[in-house]
Design a protein around this nucleic acid. Structure first.
Lengths: 214, 214
DNA sequence: TAGATTGTTAATCGATTAACAATC
DNA sequence: TAGATTGTTAATCGATTAACAATC
């Protein structure tokens, strides 16, 4: 995945947190906030917060801080939350169904257009109002509906091949839940959620903790 | 979360990848591998791979490389995969059910002991052979069964409070799927899976890409 | 032995933190 | 105006990469 701007991924991955905490301040009726106060809430340093925000513009005011409402809106725009995205889910297993029914997903502007699977046992099922379609139909579906994001909830075996199919249909981003690293041409955006790696991190840290006790 | 060893999290988060790729080599009947070859496969530099592995010991041999079987076993031990872990899931919604039915979870030694929820609609349901119990019973359950890992698949509102309850019962690790940052005393291990942040990263990158096209 | 490849130190790079002038 | 707090530059810290002697 090539990148176009010079914003580092370290910064990018903090932006959703800022957005979330600002939403909270807003809910609590708080109108202004300083980088120091944001630091206290988020755990990032005030310096880092100011640096991060300044990658995108000077949203603050000396002596005052930041306007919560305004900064929240700005971050929403920066994160691309001011529009909707057309998505499909490949794989109607437990993970696929969980994502389909994940309300936050829809609330954030990610609209599910269809679900696909290759198992006769699942094809025809209704998930979140969508009839699960056979995987053979995915290419036409993407082209006809202008789908932008493919969500892969497939077993690891077939995933690389399906991802290639999606890329051939000019999908722009893949949210990958399969435990594989996709090797894809072009500049398709790949975002992995590797649950197994997250889990192994826990077991590592648990073991480390026990080892240190000895 | 305090750390005890001096292994950086950057290194820790690469270990599961090494482990996964070595498993693949093993499946393909490959007996030895050099850091250069591992670099080609994983995308990390050979230098980084050697540095990472050397945090834990000299598993290689000059002029030869690494024995795949041996390195795989070593990494399994380092990751704490040579034992089982007792877990419970709090929240029997879509995410909780997906994790419960996630076969990889069980295969890796994470054994599900119970499921809990606070909704009368879900209490009593059978999920992966476990009757969903009322959340009020969780404290006794943890103590009686020696549960080590709590998996939080709850809506964000109640999550902090439940996490505190788990810590009071001396749970050692929390795998958190709720979109909140837990603030907890002691040295409980917290591993977050923040799907919403992952999703917002996609929308950011998509927007960035479009902006650059203009 | 000669070639290959590690383990490890040193150099580089990038990200975080500190400091402070600008200014509201 | 005086105090507060940003935006931004410089300093520090940590992580990655390069280099190479050790050695199988």
């Amino acid at each position: 995945m090539e990148r176009f701007s010079n914003i580092s991924m370290a910064v990018v991955r903090r932006l959703p947190k800022y957005h979330r905490y600002l939403r909270e301040l807003l809910n609590n009726g708080i109108g202004r906030v300083s980088s120091q106060e944001l630091s206290r809430i988020t755990g990032f340093t005030a310096s880092q917060i100011r640096q991060d925000l300044n990658c995108f513009g000077g949203f603050g005011q000396q002596g005052y801080g930041y306007n919560v409402e305004e900064l929240y809106q700005e971050l929403g725009n920066i994160l691309g939350l001011n529009r909707t995205y057309k998505t499909i889910i490949i794989g109607a297993g437990n993970v696929g169904r969980a994502i389909a029914n994940y309300t936050f997903f829809e609330e954030s502007g990610f609209k599910l257009y269809g679900m696909f699977d290759n198992s006769p046992k699942k094809i025809g099922d209704i998930v979140k109002g969508h009839k699960v379609l056979p995987i053979e139909q995915v290419e036409n579906f993407i082209k006809e509906n202008g789908i932008e994001i493919g969500i892969l909830c497939t077993p690891k075996e077939g995933t690389q091949k399906i991802a290639e199919t999606l890329v051939n249909c000019n999908i722009t981003a893949i949210w990958n839940f399969a435990p594989v690293d996709l090797k894809l041409e072009g500049n398709v955006i790949i975002e992995n959620v590797h649950l197994s790696e997250s889990l192994f991190t826990i077991s590592f840290l648990l073991k480390e903790r026990e080892d240190m006790k000895k």
